[in-house]
Amino acid sequence: MFTRIFGKPKQEANALTTLDKLSETLEMLEKKENLLLKKVAAEVEKAKEFTRSKNKRAAIQCLKRKKLYEQQVEQLGNFQLRIHDQMIMLEGAKATTETVDALRTGAAAMKAMQKATNIDDVDKTMDEINEQTENMKQIQEALSAPIGAAADFDEDELEAELEELEGAELEEQLLQPATTAPAATVHVAPGRQPIRPVPSKPTPEEDELAALQAEMAL
C-alpha cells in the first residue's frame, strides 16, 4: 500500500528534486518580499516629504503605491506559507517512505533468519544432541564396568578378608615389646660447672712421639 502511495526509489528521487525546487522558490519569494518592504518604506518617506512641502496630491499618490506594495507583500507571504506547507508534507512523506523501507528490510531479514532456523530444524538438532548425550553416557558406563577376572570377585569376601588383615595388624602391634628408654640426661644444677675428666698420664711412647714432632718443627 505504501508503495502505491509514495512510489518507488525513482519517485523518492523526484521528491528530493521537488524539495530543492521549492526551497529555491521560497528563497526567491523572500528576496522579493524584502525588496517590496524597502519600497514601502521609501514611499512612506516620500509621503512625509510631500506632506512637509504641502504637496498633498503627491503624498496621497505615495500612500497609494505603498498600499499596492503592501498587497504584494501579503500575497508573497501567502505564497511562502503554501510552499512551507508543501515542503512539510513532502518531508513527512519522505520520512514515512524511509521508515517503511527500513521496516520492510527488517521484516525481510527476520524472515530470512526464521527460514534459516526453522523450528523443525531446531527440534531435530535438539533430538540429535540428546541422542549423542545418551550414547556417550552408555559408553562411559560400559568402560567403567569391570571385566575379566575382576568381574568375578565377590565384594563381601573382599570385605571379610580386609577385616581379618586389620585384626591381625592390631594384634601384632599389641604383642610388640616396649622400646628401651633413652639414656637419662645429666642436668647440672644452676651455678655449678660440670666436673671435667682428669687427663691420664702420657705413656713413654707418647712422650717420644711428642719430642720427635717438636724436633721436626724446629
Score class of each variant (00 low, 15 high):
3 T>W: 04
3 T>E: 09
6 F>S: 04
9 P>N: 03
17 T>W: 14
21 K>F: 10
25 T>L: 13
31 K>N: 01
33 E>L: 00
36 L>H: 02
40 V>W: 02
41 A>K: 11
46 K>Y: 08
48 K>W: 05
48 K>M: 00
49 E>A: 12
54 K>M: 11
56 K>Q: 13
56 K>H: 13
58 A>S: 08
62 C>F: 03
65 R>E: 09
66 K>L: 10
66 K>Y: 06
67 K>P: 02
68 L>G: 10
71 Q>Y: 08
85 D>M: 11
87 M>T: 12
91 E>Q: 15
96 T>E: 06
98 E>L: 08
98 E>G: 01
103 L>I: 11
107 A>F: 07
107 A>N: 14
109 A>H: 01
110 M>H: 12
111 K>I: 01
113 M>H: 07
118 N>C: 06
121 D>E: 01
123 D>K: 12
126 M>Q: 09
126 M>E: 05
127 D>K: 14
128 E>P: 04
130 N>R: 12
135 N>M: 10
140 Q>S: 13
142 A>T: 14
147 I>R: 12
157 E>Q: 14
159 E>W: 05
162 L>F: 01
164 E>R: 13
168 A>S: 09
170 L>F: 08
171 E>T: 15
174 L>P: 02
176 Q>H: 08
176 Q>N: 07
185 T>L: 08
193 Q>I: 00
198 V>E: 07
198 V>C: 04
206 E>L: 06
211 A>C: 00
215 E>A: 04
